[in-house]
């Protein structure tokens, strides 16, 4: 099954109103099984392997086992995401391991100021100029077709 939950590690997000994996899954797949108080992917064949649940789980309880109808067993791709970078470890079927680290963001989380310091050139609702234009485009005016 694409994303799966490790029994030992999942604490059902007890401290939260809603489990993190259920909050995030874009396909509404992750649910809390009331009898076990553990999360489960309710329809693995509808999973995009997008890793959104893997990245957000506070206890690293979620991993992905590649689609069994075409992936041999043994490959593991696991991320650790912080607020400005992501670390990936890729384990091959033959045991080889590669690690990659990528930047994800250059500003602190939550700090976005929509105008980003640009000003808007017009208050005319009928003008084709959009918010922060033309300044944000780096041009003095909007281009037209010649």
């Amino acid at each position: 099954m694409p994303s799966f939950v490790i029994t030992q590690k999942c604490d059902g997000c007890k401290a939260l109103d809603l489990t993190a994996c259920q909050y995030i899954c874009p396909n509404d797949l992750m649910v809390l099984d009331k009898s076990t108080e553990k999360a489960i992917n309710r329809a693995p064949e509808m999973c995009w392997e997008c890793y959104s649940c893997v990245k957000i789980c506070p206890t690293q309880a979620i991993e992905v086992r590649g689609y069994a109808d075409f992936m041999p067993l043994g490959g593991v791709v696991q991320p650790m995401r912080s607020s400005d970078a992501i670390m990936w470890s890729v384990k091959f079927r033959d045991g080889d391991i590669k690690r990659f680290r990528f930047k994800t963001r250059t500003t602190p989380e939550g700090s976005i100021e929509p105008d980003a310091g640009y000003s808007t050139g017009t208050s005319d609702l009928k003008s084709p100029l959009l918010r922060t234009e033309p300044e944000s485009s780096g041009m003095s005016d909007l281009s037209k077709l010649d």
Binding site: P72, G75, V77, P79, W88, K91, D94, F100
Partner: peptide, 20 residues
């Protein structure tokens, strides 16, 4: 090359890993 997959189609990285 790996970032290209890991940023937008993680399954492809997993397929490469599982098929060496």
């Amino acid at each position: 090359a790996w970032e290209d997959f890991l940023d937008m189609t993680i399954s492809q990285a997993l397929l490469w890993a599982s098929t060496n």
